[in-house]
Nucleic acid binder design. Sequence first.
DNA 1: CCTGTCACG
DNA 2: GACGTACGTGACAGGG
Length: 932
Amino acid sequence: MAFGKGHHLHLIDGSAFIFRAYHALPPLTRKSDGLPVGAVSGFCNMLQKYVQDNHGPDAPTHVAVIFDKGSHTFRNEMYPEYKANREAMPEDLRPQIPLTRQATEAFNIACKEMEGYEADDIIATLSCRARDAGGRVTIISSDKDLMQLVGGGVEMFDAMKNNRIGVEGVEAKFGVGPERVVDVQALAGDSVDNVPGAPGIGVKTAALLINEFGDLETLLDRAEEIPQPKRRQTLLDNREQIELSKRLVQLDCETPLEFTLDDLEVREPDPERLMTFLAEMEFRTLTKRIAEALQVEPPAIPEPATQEAGEGPAPEWPGIDPDAYERISDMKALDSWIRLIRHQGYVAVDTETTSLNEMQADLVGICLAIQPGQACYIPLGHKDGSADDLFGSDALLEGQLPLQDVLDALKPVLEDEAILKIGQNMKYDAKVLARYGLTVAPFDDTMLMSYALYSGVHGHGMDTLSERYLNHTPIPIKDLLGTGKSAITFDKVAIDDAVKYAAEDADITLRLWLTFKPQLHRHQATTVYETLERPLSPVLAQMERHGIKVDREVLSRMSNAFAQKMAGLEAEIHELAGRSFNVGSPKQLGEILFDEMGLEGGKKGKTGAYATGADVLEDLATEHELPARVLDWRQLSKLKSTYTDALQDHIDPDTGRVHTSYVQTGANTGRLASTDPNLQNIPVRTEEGRRIREAFIAEPGNTLVSLDYSQIELRILAHIADLPALKQAFREGQDIHAMTASEMFDVPMDDMTPEIRRRAKAINFGVIYGISGFGLARNLRIPRAEAQAFIDRYFERFPGIRAYMDNTVAFAKEHGYVQTLFGRRIHTPEIAAKGPRAGFAKRAAINAPIQGTAADIIRRAMIRMPDAIADQPAKMLLQVHDELIFEVEAGAEDALIDAARSVMEGAADPAVKLDVPLVVDAGQGSNWAEAH
DNA sequence: CCTGTCACG
DNA sequence: GACGTACGTGACAGGG
């Protein structure tokens, strides 16, 4: 039956798929010959997802992937500059283009292109024909140039955003219906395709004009009637250029096609052909996944003969097979493993426990791996998971070695200086084992290796690393434990299942270590790993185990006080609103403010809800009472729920202290992150919030001491950007913000006012963040032009800043990363992006060396600290980016401050000689509020 | 699970 | 020219 009513044609914009795949994925190469295949891999993934998502009731009857062919089209005949500003295709993408055609055919999807025509024209022609035949069309693309085709049964679908675009979608984008889109584009032009349009007219203005005059021809004929002189002149002067632009953007529905709609009928994939192609590309994970979907056996993909400098798994390794692992249930077997380990000199270690909280976690089993594929699991604390009576489940299962025997046997191995212990996030295992009296040293940590190598490229969790470097998806822990309320703990997992999961983790860890170890040198990350990452881990473990004492009574009293105040505020708010509603719901609050009370300035975000952030409410607060009350309520709600309530739940029942966890790989810049609870965001800026710090106390007879770096990031900026005036000021111990203000605004230091100083301070911080006129304007609440004038002035007075910013961005573009003074590399893959993402990436690149160098410095101090204060009755408890908090016996405060300060102030030495001094301020008291 | 909001450096 | 933008984090509540 010929294509017609009841049929549904899908047209996939192939080029868009390719470019999206290319930019979304790292530059993968085929292992056997180094052929770049990243884009092909992404392309196949997207096709696979497409096929999977489209076999329901609304499945297409016809489908084709449409590609561009050749760069010279009939549009270049009209206008030689058409698309002339396009950057050349990246070298490693070019060879992948024909492969994407092959991929499409392998999926048994029609694949169409025509010399001299753009994909858009083929799509247009097919859409028109299908529509005229009475069928439906979905164009899978988000390209705005295709929006003119929408309507009359033609829709678009943005596969990225999972978003259908119909007539309303087009109207939202262009302000006119699909039939007038070309008119708007003709006026607005298009910088991407180098369509000139009318100078000074954008989409908004163009839509306004078209809506007023009906269409482009009428508008051009009656241009004299336009009231605004500038616009009128532009249109009169550029008539020809506008008409040319329209011809350029108008898609051609008359492309002479050599095939018909009926040739595009959906065909079942031929599994063999598809598998053969995927195997040829050596896509291991994808081949497996698609084989599963098609319910066929995946073909074996031969490993290449030699392992070159590639980052993937070595060829001689056996596949990861959970059934191949050994379960240890007698001492003889354990002893023979220990002999193997001693002989080899290294072993991957992983512990299984009952909790993610190392302070609470009980050991359930230990696994060891010595070679890829050679791993064992020693079950120690497994209980009967099926027993549901309260008493039966406490009994240990049969066939497990006594915990103490195993620990005694392993202790000499774990503590042997000649045996390297390898872990993924070893801090966790070390903390658990420490509670059983075991030290783990020396060690390597694959998570930290990944971080030193690839910060900013990808995450550093085991699943990510395994998928990326071993092409293997580990058994999800969910499969064993379940999720949510019904989740069980690891001790209730059947031993046979535990062997597979746990030993696999050790196997993967060992393989990752074998992969990363040689890469450290190749990527010049050895020093960072050896001096900034590995030695910090045990220091953090120790700090976390100490914890900090928190007074539950203080928090509880504050919670009650907050609750009372909130109830009062809530009543007032409901009164002012005229009805009761959930004050904590931004959605309901927005409706109250802007719909019911009719306040001005309501702006809806992308979800369609009104924005009710603090900045919005602050503006409204000048006019009305309600938003001011809501702000007060929000502050209290935050303090109560996040701090006074939640912190109480984090007090360890055994120690009476709060034990945070530092994520060493948490921030791309080298900073730490603190979780469960986050002790790096305890309030300090408001009086009310600061009082929460009174709950953080020293043990009786002890004092809390806080030492923090003064202006460390600005000092680093002065050094890195080589700003003589700033460096001089720091050397002389001047008020740096006042100095900046004096320099910028020509005010003598003696006449400085707080307001002028405040502005200079905001600019100083802005520079660290990759300053923009917009950002500074918002921060200072001044007009943008004024903010920009400040910035210009700043650059004039401190020319080194401009140079630093430009050089840093250029470096990032050339190398794909920026680095700190200590050689830490922070990768900036987004720096090549187009659009708003480029701005983000630039500012992040400017900020990273500054924030990262500061992070490196305090890390160095922390690493040296335990030895420096070893003879003092003091413990380091917390780090808050530029601050260290200690607990010290009363009477020993000054000695501790002397020692710790000298470590901190000298932390850059001897690796880096800073042109500015580092200065550390100290405070002390019985609680954190006093000490800070 | 995502979004908005807000706490810190 | 238009558009959207300060850097880095984590936790909580609401809502689909």
